[in-house]
């Protein structure tokens, strides 16, 4: 396991493995052997309702792992169980090899958590948020001051250190929440929809920060319903739907397994998609009819477009693009992810 505090300079040696240029500021317990996160038949029920329905997950140290799924898939419910704040309803769950039912505080001491909705302390300033949160981990005053200074730099909030949290922009608050989750040098960082609600620029800034963390050796577990986010950040992911895992692999694997290389998107006047859909039979490998467009899956999108034109199909617009995880999801569940 290689988990370094953020801010440690990592040099990549000739054989490609990273070594810390400084000693970590804090001693860690002996590395946990085995996976950082292990779930077997994990379930979560709320009364009669089953939110997580027997999932198997294994995440190794240093990995960046994603839960991808639409609203209500059970991503947050899973994350809360992993964060040792929600009792497991069934199955087995181990984090760092520990059982959250009996070792909750010990697990949480080694975790960083960025919840789906920010719960920053609005009555405190930006830096106080970091200090106080660090104190909840039992860190000393001196430790939290030093660490907070590094993290403010990391989150690009140094010049807002003394400001109240309230008036910060959504992107700044999110960065502060992530900085706060790093105050204890976590070995495992749980990010529940880290960039939902941010504009594209703010998302890219956040991705960059998360990417640096990943490079410094922190294990990331991310939930998202953005395909591009999963493709950017995750080495491996599971697609969740209705509390179950419907597919697992690297973004590239999943696209190769469940989609074609390219996709041809055709838009028509809303009402008459049925006719062109019928006329396209036999072109490409597969056709998905969405309410507002047709998606034609083909190895060569341009060739498919030529074939469509040859059959006299005249769309309002046509677009050839590469397959994404969105297409994987559509194929697996018959539904789009973000509607």
């Amino acid at each position: 396991m290689r988990s370094l505090p953020f801010g440690t300079v990592v040099r990549v040696t000739a054989n490609g493995s990273a070594t810390p240029a400084e000693r970590p500021t804090r001693r860690r317990p002996a590395p946990t052997s085995g996976p950082i996160l292990l779930a077997r038949g994990l379930r979560k029920t709320f009364g009669e309702f089953t939110a997580v329905d027997g999932i198997d997950v294994e995440v190794q140290a240093g990995e960046s792992f994603g839960f991808l799924g639409p609203n209500g898939a059970g991503k947050s419910s899973t994350m809360r169980m992993v964060g040792a704040v929600s009792p497991v309803s069934g199955g087995e769950l181990r984090i760092f090899g520990l059982d959250p039912a009996s070792d909750g505080p010990a697990i949480r001491a080694r975790l960083g958590v960025c919840p789906q909705t920010d719960n920053l302390d609005d009555e405190l300033t930006v830096e106080e948020n970091l200090w106080i949160y660090g104190r909840y981990f039992g860190l000393s005053r001196a430790q939290v001051r030093e660490r907070a200074a590094e993290l403010l730099e990391f989150a690009q909030l140094t010049d807002r250190a003394g400001d109240k949290v309230e008036p910060l922009s959504g992107g700044m608050k999110r960065r502060l929440t992530i900085a706060r989750s790093l105050i204890n040098n976590p070995e495992l960082l749980l990010l529940d929809e880290p960039t939902t609600g941010l504009d594209p620029q703010a998302r890219h800034v956040l991705w960059d920060r998360l990417f640096r963390l990943k490079r410094s050796g922190v294990t990331l577990v991310i939930t998202t319903h953005y395909m591009d986010e999963a493709e950017q950040l995750c080495d491996r992911l599971v697609v969740m739907d209705h509390g179950r895992i419907v597919a697992e692999g690297s973004p590239r694997d999943l696209i190769a397994r469940y989609s074609t290389r390219e996709v041809l998107e055709l838009r028509f006047d809303a009402d008459d998609q049925a006719a062109p859909a019928a006329a396209l039979a036999g072109v490409g490998e597969r056709l998905e009819v969405l309410p507002d467009r047709l998606l034609l899956y083909a190895h060569d999108g341009d060739a498919a477009l030529s074939a469509a034109s040859a059959r006299g199909i005249r769309p309002l617009s046509a677009l050839v693009r590469r397959s994404t995880l969105e297409d994987v999801f559509l194929h697996l569940t018959g539904r789009t992810l973000v509607d």
Binding site: V85, G104, N119, D121
Partner: peptide, 14 residues
Amino acid sequence: YAKLYDGMLATPLG
């Protein structure tokens, strides 16, 4: 409203 305790309970605090 502030959901402060949710934040606290994500740390070793119980």
